[in-house]
């Protein structure tokens, strides 16, 4: 379980996170929802230690240390995070070299699934292809948690379908997934939980199926309630 407690973050004078608390459980797909600049990316980066918090704690399975964190948690940012001159196969090799949890067989399967050419150079990839490569890098490792930052932004519909398939397959089963997006429409039915951020705080933290069951509302409906006021 990833447990974020009372996270605060100031960025350029603005309070991006103002006391955020929530949990992301293993075996569930949790979505962080919010408008642009709401602090979703910041939270994911904070979990990964890429950005320091002003205040608050983040615990992954109860521990706070960084050493083993990166074998447990994968991060998929909204770019490939590899030198532009690298070929894709060099990027894969990098992961193999540094991570014990890397699974080369699954990496090959994913490369084939996404129809990626290992000889291409990272710098020449289109946004959609780079996003797919990012998914390969993040999902081919046997990590317990996967953090995805805006996996759907700027990507064409068919690529989105492929990515959506990834959510439903065994790639995501038994792992904890924390996704951020500001366009919830297409993936709503895939989510277990949704955490809605507003003004740096958690406005709603809901079980998606429960809200549909009990209130007859979609997550999008809840979003309207939260963000239109």
């Amino acid at each position: 379980m990833i447990h974020i407690q009372d996270a605060h973050k100031r960025y350029r004078g603005r309070k991006v996170l103002d006391g955020v608390t929530f949990k992301a459980e293993k075996g569930q797909i949790t979505c962080l929802v919010g408008m642009n600049g709401a602090g979703k990316s910041t939270l994911l980066k904070a979990i990964m230690g890429l950005v320091p918090l002003s205040r608050g704690t983040i615990k992954v399975d109860g521990v706070q240390t960084k050493r083993e964190l990166y074998e447990k948690v994968s991060f998929i940012p909204d770019h490939a995070a590899m030198p532009g001159g690298y070929r894709l196969e060099e990027g894969l090799q990098f992961m193999d070299d540094y991570y014990a949890s890397w699974n080369p067989t699954r990496a090959d399967e994913l490369m084939a699934f996404f129809q990626l050419n290992a000889r291409d150079r990272v710098g020449n990839l289109s946004k959609g292809t780079a996003a797919k490569f990012g998914l390969v890098l993040g999902l081919a490792a046997d990590t317990e948690f996967v953090l995805m930052d805006e996996p759907f932004s700027g990507i064409d519909v068919f690529s989105r379908e492929m990515i959506g398939e990834v959510f439903s397959s065994r790639l995501v089963e038994e792992r904890g997934v924390l996704v951020t997006t500001h366009e919830i429409g297409e993936i709503e039915y895939l989510l277990d939980r949704a955490v809605l951020l507003k003004d740096g705080k958690v406005a709603r933290d809901i079980d998606c199926e429960q809200v549909r069951d009990e209130d007859g509302k979609s997550v999008l409906d809840v979003m309207r309630e939260v963000y239109r006021t």
Binding site: M48, K66, A80, M82, Y98, G123
Partner: peptide
């Protein structure tokens, strides 16, 4: 750059 490598360098197991 478009794909800041620092993200990887900062998140490899073994610390900074």
């Amino acid at each position: 750059g478009r794909h800041p490598f620092i993200y990887r360098q900062m998140t490899i197991p073994g610390g900074r």
